[in-house]
């Protein structure tokens, strides 16, 4: 296969060279680039093409693109300037906000301090009042306790006399109220 290929290649090349040799005799040099009979034609049309391209570019395309680029540059510059302006405004607004926040915080602190003082004063006053009322109440209560104790003593005496009388009569004796009362009194004193 390989040898076949090689021989075929060889033949092909030989043929090509041979053909080219024949051509050279009939149609000039092997390189069409060096066939000077076509140069006039190519140069003429080349110059036409270049002139057309030059006029299309210099009259229409390049000014247009330059204008578009300049306009874009202008737009970008404007936008950047506006963005900077907005940024400055934003930072000013932020500073104002910070200031307001600081003021508000200070005011809040003052208010809470004042409120705390107020409440402390009120609490102190209320405590004093409550102390006074408690003292009054406890004095009242002491008096009531003394009264109750006194009345309770009287009650005890009466109950003792009654009980003694009832006991005496229950034991079959005749109750002498005065004697019983005297005895009970003695007992209670003792």
């Amino acid at each position: 296969m390989a040898t076949e290929t090689h021989s075929a290649t060889g033949n092909g090349l030989a043929d090509a060279v041979g053909v080219e040799g024949h051509d050279m005799a009939t149609a000039g040099p092997g390189m069409p680039q060096l066939d000077f009979s076509t140069w006039g034609n190519q140069i003429f049309w080349l110059l036409v093409a270049l002139v057309v391209i030059y006029f299309v570019l210099s009259r229409v395309a390049l000014p247009r693109i330059a204008a578009v680029l300049a306009e874009r540059q202008g737009t970008i510059t404007n936008d950047i300037a506006r963005a900077e302006d907005l940024k400055r405004q934003a930072s000013e607004a932020e500073a104002a906000y910070e200031q307001a926040l600081k003021d508000a915080r200070a005011e809040a602190q003052a208010i809470s301090q004042r409120t705390r003082d107020d409440i402390k004063a009120q609490v102190a006053e209320a405590t004093k009042e409550a102390d006074a009322r408690i003292a009054e109440k406890s004095a009242e209560a002491d008096k009531a306790v003394a009264e109750i104790r006194a009345s309770a003593m009287g009650n005890v005496e009466a109950v003792a006399k009654d009980t003694a009388e009832a006991l005496v009569s229950a034991l079959g004796g005749s109750a002498d109220t005065a004697a019983i009362s005297k005895a009970v009194d003695n007992r209670m004193k003792g």
Binding site: G12, L13, D15, A16, V19, P32, N41, Q42
Partner: peptide, 19 residues
Amino acid sequence: AHGAESGGLVFHPMDQFIV
């Protein structure tokens, strides 16, 4: 342009440049 006389392989690399 050249006919098929060469059989398998045909090399005319410069023909594309003919005006």
